[in-house]
Nucleic acid binder design. Sequence first.
DNA 1: TTGTATGCGTTATCAT
DNA 2: ATGATAACGCATACAA
Lengths: 316, 316
Amino acid sequence: MISSIELAKLCGVSQGTVDRALHNRPGISETTRRKILDLAKRHGYLPNPAVREIMDRSSNIVGAIIPALNNIFFMDMMSLLKDSLEAHGKMLFLTPVHGKADFLTALEEFAARKMHAAIVVPPEENLPLPSHLTQSLPVLSLLSRCSERSVPCLTADEIQTGKTAVQYLADLGHQKILHLTYRRKAKGIEDRTAGYKSQMNKLHLKPIVSIYSSENDFLKTLDRHHPTAIFCHNDWLAITILRHLQTHNIQIPQDISILGVDHTPTFQTLCPDLSSMEYPLASFTHTITDWTLTKKLTSPPEPLTVIPGKTVRALS
Amino acid sequence: MISSIELAKLCGVSQGTVDRALHNRPGISETTRRKILDLAKRHGYLPNPAVREIMDRSSNIVGAIIPALNNIFFMDMMSLLKDSLEAHGKMLFLTPVHGKADFLTALEEFAARKMHAAIVVPPEENLPLPSHLTQSLPVLSLLSRCSERSVPCLTADEIQTGKTAVQYLADLGHQKILHLTYRRKAKGIEDRTAGYKSQMNKLHLKPIVSIYSSENDFLKTLDRHHPTAIFCHNDWLAITILRHLQTHNIQIPQDISILGVDHTPTFQTLCPDLSSMEYPLASFTHTITDWTLTKKLTSPPEPLTVIPGKTVRALS
DNA sequence: TTGTATGCGTTATCAT
DNA sequence: ATGATAACGCATACAA
């Protein structure tokens, strides 16, 4: 990759003149301009972004940190986010991380590179971040909160998500609704469960919350509670559960109804007929993009809506 | 984020002295060294990588380009690759892309940033790359080939994969083995199908290859051929198929056996009991890491091995 | 119309 | 033991 100085030498002009040609600035003859642009194209000249980053003390890269595992949802979101950011001249670079140490290392690297902002999925709830990091690098957290007040946490209204799910199933006649969720503590997870409980109580139904750990445990839970519907924390879990039920010859939705959450492109392909709740990815990524540009969380993401499929039935 | 010059001012020394302290170089008194290191830590000083990139004309970043959709397998691989590269002081940055134009834009950006290397999943087979790109940026392609001879394409021995799958199913008594695959042209995909056909012919069985497009088409194919086993191109497809069969009350594996390919962490979690073939991710990422360091493909990846699950049965 | 000089942050090589 | 300086590539202000 040629530099602007080498390009200047090739053209027999000064590097200042090359710059005038490349940036369409006045004060240059049409002849030299054409010659320079021609040679630039032929050699595939591209300015070195590192130089801009030094001079501006800031890069046009937005860094994202997502979990190395369980990333289907985040990858679907990041793919959209990338397009949205690109429309504003920002690049999105992703890093998958395995835990707290990995996470903090990546964040330090982002800060050292003076990235424009960081969009992160913290590996645990209430993670403290070194203050020198948050002072120089704007950080937006998804799903889980960081302990710094200066780091906003963006989630959909997950309490509402839980309520909507319950109401949808209850409207179809379900009363024994099991909520299957994860052990991991995270605002986005806990809120959804809280919304479930709240709405169940409001309808005078008994909340049954179960942490998914293994097929065996799940089957025991089924035996104990005999739910007519299962509200899974997300589509990932719903797909796993569907397979468990298939193995044990339990009919869906005749014997039991399954409702997931996410309905992102990947899950739609994996299981097109899954009844689910659609995560408002477009409005979500729009909010994130706005934040990276203004550092302010303007429009809150829209609520999730139920996408009826074939895994939930009405009780007669 | 403080700079080394600001740090020097804070310490009341020259920036050269700061450098000696930061790099543990001789020619500095213990007292000043401690003071500098102390203040550096307090302010969270980190050298700006952009400067190194300018001076070295090369960065320690390895860029990866993966499809925005259908990325489960690649994300599982990239997560491992990241760890492997990190052990050699290289960072891995991912970019999801949507098609050819997006792909080439990302590659240009990588070249402009003088990245150490690019690991890419081309959006189509035999994609031509601008020569100025491949001259300055070492590119390794996965799954699909690029048209440049200077761009190596790494895949497992997928012909062998297809053969192994057929032999495994045939040994269990299956004769009507349907191969379900994708329309997309890619060396990794076509080789697997070629291996399937080859082994079927060798065993004097009739190859039945079907491109998956929709549930309806799939059901028609089933009706037409009545296979006893389906060899799916990958676990993603296998999971989709499992759900189709569940919907139509076809018992697995009593009525039909399903074999997938990949068995990476995500697919293992999604469907733990799926019979599959394990992609040798560790040896694969090792080979990639070697290549980024030496620009030579040394050890070829190991062959895939069958992981028996509960979705394939022996015909009595 | 064109050439030259300065600064960005870091490192390495000088000189003091 | 410490300070000064050149170099990297690019943008910009200024000189010719």
